[in-house]
Design a protein around this nucleic acid. Sequence first.
DNA 1: CATATAAGGTTATCAGACAACCTTACAATG
DNA 2: CATTGTAAGGTTGTCTGATAACCTTATATG
Lengths: 235, 235
Amino acid sequence: MEFGHIRRSEHLPARIAAQIARDITEGRMRPGEKLPTEHFLAKALGVSRSVVREAIAQLRNEGLVETRQGVGAFVTEPHARPIRIEQDDLADHQSFRDLFQLRVPLEIEAAGLAALHHTADDLQRIDETLAGMSGAEKWTAEGIVADLAFHRAVAAATGNEYFSVFIGFIAERISLAINAARAAAVLEEIVEVTIEEHVALRDAIASRDPKRAREAMKTHLLGAAKRLDLTLEAY
Amino acid sequence: MEFGHIRRSEHLPARIAAQIARDITEGRMRPGEKLPTEHFLAKALGVSRSVVREAIAQLRNEGLVETRQGVGAFVTEPHARPIRIEQDDLADHQSFRDLFQLRVPLEIEAAGLAALHHTADDLQRIDETLAGMSGAEKWTAEGIVADLAFHRAVAAATGNEYFSVFIGFIAERISLAINAARAAAVLEEIVEVTIEEHVALRDAIASRDPKRAREAMKTHLLGAAKRLDLTLEAY
DNA sequence: CATATAAGGTTATCAGACAACCTTACAATG
DNA sequence: CATTGTAAGGTTGTCTGATAACCTTATATG
């Protein structure tokens, strides 16, 4: 096992943890295998034991290793790691587009499921977000927040918690990125059109027509993509 | 702010982290608020600074706090926190079905995008997973792993990293859940059928026919759902 | 053979110190 | 006055060394 020295930069423990994590995920360390002792790692990496401990603690939090007092640290069985996406990943245009592209099929399906499964409460919450969107003339950031609330409400109406979690997460990231990048004037135009499309979608859901709801969501999202100058495949 | 002493049991840092996490998620500490200094917390909780540091490091890994050297630790804004889903959430049948339902539109879209965007390398990796699946007669767990690898390879062929991340995550959870719940005999039958469907999907991708690829994936997933006794909406 | 006991190794925790970095206040400079 | 430099104090980051708790293994003991 090789343990090259760590470059002096920022976040030593995170760097070390990432290195060991790579060793594990890329197969250089197999499940059940014992990590070197903290003492050894500290010597080998040229850092103190505190840093090594913090790195191992991070790996333990991520579920990649297990530590047993008096015995050592061991690579765990291929146990699913939590998914994790950082805001910074959306900095460039490519990532933004990719995430938007991921959003489309999820939201279309959610619209269809919402049409089938929504309750009276769900519909009321959707209507509330619509009212919040057209209520004031505070476009810009307010409009983005209201748009996000609408999409959340539709996702919640599916009755499937995972749609809520994933769509909420993705839509929120996209909203934040838009809000950070776009000028107020552009936002105003976007929001104007958005409201009409939201109402159309809401009506399709209310009439329990999954096909129409899906089409409405598709129209809405592809329209939004166009207004954001994103080119997405459509077929 | 109250900081009652921590009971002497196991995993002091985890206990402390959990306590602070509760303070944050239950609103007793608001986003942007500064945590007490490590020194103060150590004194107040009756533990050493190392323990406090490890607890705060865990919170940082979970995205609940941010630390700035020389300044302090601060509660993060909720939207800056990464999405995180634990394995335990899939214990009951309802959750399993819901996650499977979420998977369907994602994978269908991925199949279409893979047909459009795959490179020669992508296709080769897909073929490798097919070979791995039919290569041995070790069905059961091996078959599940190979199935997962196939779906990962297709997602990777989209060229969209987020499809890889999300589909990899979801499919892995489902695979683990299936592996834990099903008997070997049942798995064998499932895998038999799966291979044919995989090949069909592979051919559709290879001929760059997104429509056929989407249909193949849809057939495959809805068939899989049926074999798992899941009832999903289809329209 | 079965059971205690001792020894050594490893992680968990503690304690104290110094380094790196940030903020603030205030003086110096133009 | 506005800007820049500088010093002070506070906080996190890292280092060092030691002790406690725990496990494994080997050895002794009946």
